[in-house]
Structure formats: C-alpha cells, structure tokens
Design a protein around this nucleic acid. Sequence first.
DNA 1: GTAAACCCAAGTAACTTCCTCGGTATTATT
DNA 2: AATAATACCGAGGAAGTTACTTGGGTTTAC
Lengths: 150, 150
Amino acid sequence: MKLSTKGEYGLRAMFDLAQRHGSGPISLKSVAARQEISEHYLEQLIAVLRKVGLVKSVRGAQGGYMLGREPENIKVGDIIRALEGPIAPMDCVNEEDPEECSRSGSCITRNIWRKVRDSISEVLDSITLQDMCDEAELERQKNDCYMYYI
Amino acid sequence: MKLSTKGEYGLRAMFDLAQRHGSGPISLKSVAARQEISEHYLEQLIAVLRKVGLVKSVRGAQGGYMLGREPENIKVGDIIRALEGPIAPMDCVNEEDPEECSRSGSCITRNIWRKVRDSISEVLDSITLQDMCDEAELERQKNDCYMYYI
DNA sequence: GTAAACCCAAGTAACTTCCTCGGTATTATT
DNA sequence: AATAATACCGAGGAAGTTACTTGGGTTTAC
C-alpha cells in the first residue's frame, strides 16, 4: 500500500518547479541537488512528466524544465497518475480498464476497494501545486514571526 | 499504490469465515477452495491473523478456523494492518513510528501523504465484517427478487 | 490406528524498484 | 569555431519483494 519513490520524487520535483514558476527554465541538476535525488534517476521521471505535458523543456546551455501549465491547473493526482499509473488499490477497481474478475459477479470486497480508490483520488485531486506553494508561503511567514522572538 | 494479495486474500478469507460464523470450525481447505486461493499460501496468511487474535483455530480432525471476535467487532482495517503492516502511503507518515526524514522540517508533501493515509484508514476502519455480511444478504435478496421474474 | 486437519520453516522463480553507466544532441557563451 | 552546459536516450543490474511451493511435522475426532 505504499507509493514508490517515483511518485514521491516526482511530486517533490514538480513542487520545486512550481516554487520557481515564471523564472525561466530550471536545470534538472539544481532540482536534483535541492531535493537530494539522483540526477539520472530524476531524469527518467521527468521524461515521463514531459511526455504527458506536465512539464516543458528547453534544451541547450542554460536550458532546463518548467511547468507545462499554471500551478493552479496541475493537481497532485495528475502527477501521481503519470508516474505511478492509474490509482487502484486493486486491479479490479482500476480507474481505467479494470481487470475483469472471474469470480462471483456481486463482489462485496470490490466495493471496499472502490471506496478506498475514490477516497485516495479525492484527496489527490483536491490539491494543486498552487495550493502547495500557498501552504509553503504560510509556513515561511510563521517561521519569520518566530524569528523575531529570538 | 497497490495492495498485495495478502490483504486481498486475507480479507476474502475472513469474510468467508464471517459468513459461516457460529457454525463451528471451518477448514482452511474449504475456504481456500471457495475463494480459489492456494491452500498453503492461505495457511501462511491465516497464521498471521491467528497470532494477532483475529481468528481462532481448532486442531485435529474436523478442526478449522473461526473468527476470534464477533464480526461486528472486526474492522477491515484490522485485517489489512495485520497482513500488510501499518497503513502508510509513505514511510514518513507511518501510523506507528514514522520514519524521520532528514530533509526540511516543514515538509509540504508530507501533509499530503498524511491526508491520503487518513482517508484510507477512515474507509477501512468504517467497515466491519458484519457490514459486509449485511451487504451480501441484501445482494442475495435483490437476486431472489429478480429470480421470480424469470 | 488412521485420516483429517492444523502448524512450521525453508526455498525459489518471477517481478519490481531504484537506481547507474555511457553515450548523443542541442544551444548559449566565449 | 570551440567549449561547456544542458537536455535526451537506452541498456543493465543489484537488491528486495511477491506469491507462491515443498516437505515435513503435530494434534485429535472417529
């Protein structure tokens, strides 16, 4: 029931890009360094994100990556689905083309997996990269306040 | 983000026992046959469930397994946690002893994983084996009704 | 006594994860 | 024109996990 590092690293990288949105292309190297992720590995993940249009790339020196859409239009669910595949605690409740189960038609356990799937989707689709940036900003302000007291 | 067959088979087996609750010990062989699960493999899963008290066993001929508690007191979450470990889409939000993350203290992505974890837990802990039996009963009635029309 | 059941530990093939390695292509800068 | 910085690409591989199988015990109703 765990996410792989693909989803973890991918979201962190996208959040990193979101926080620098509007400042031109960001090099993969710098993202990898800040997020402490293997550069070559991150490359593979971001290639997937590029193919589905979640990021755009600029080649050559001073090139790099940027968000493919505005941060408020990128849901966490979009990123996770791109990297981890459709959300499905079980193949029989896969979001796209659920695997037919040879067993009894009215499967009680399947209803449970469906509920689990929907609750996960709901959480992931209710949060955008912009929401995350806003939260980070709030966090920063809180810390600034605290600093005055030292 | 998938459950393994441990959780799947384990829940199906427990549901099988729940539907026969009160009829004395049910042999593993019969459960495995009905649920189409390898007998030896199911044995390993049910051994875990026995150790945490979710099932009781009776040894010897005519022996078998039965629920360790009343079906209304066994939550789906209990079964899944026993077989798959604590619910955690990410180690840093593990229900029991979360793994400390060396990175920045205020981690925005962690809040997301926490929400995912909680929404999964909420679903799994809101359903008991009794609920599943009731649903199966309803399903049967629906089908009986339909039969009259044929 | 015997067969039906539970109990236990080890092994294993296939798969997945999480990378690494070594290279090519493109472009800004000098 | 040369250089360096970047993106792009494909293969490989060690370690761990999964989903079992194998091969035995032990207990007990009949």
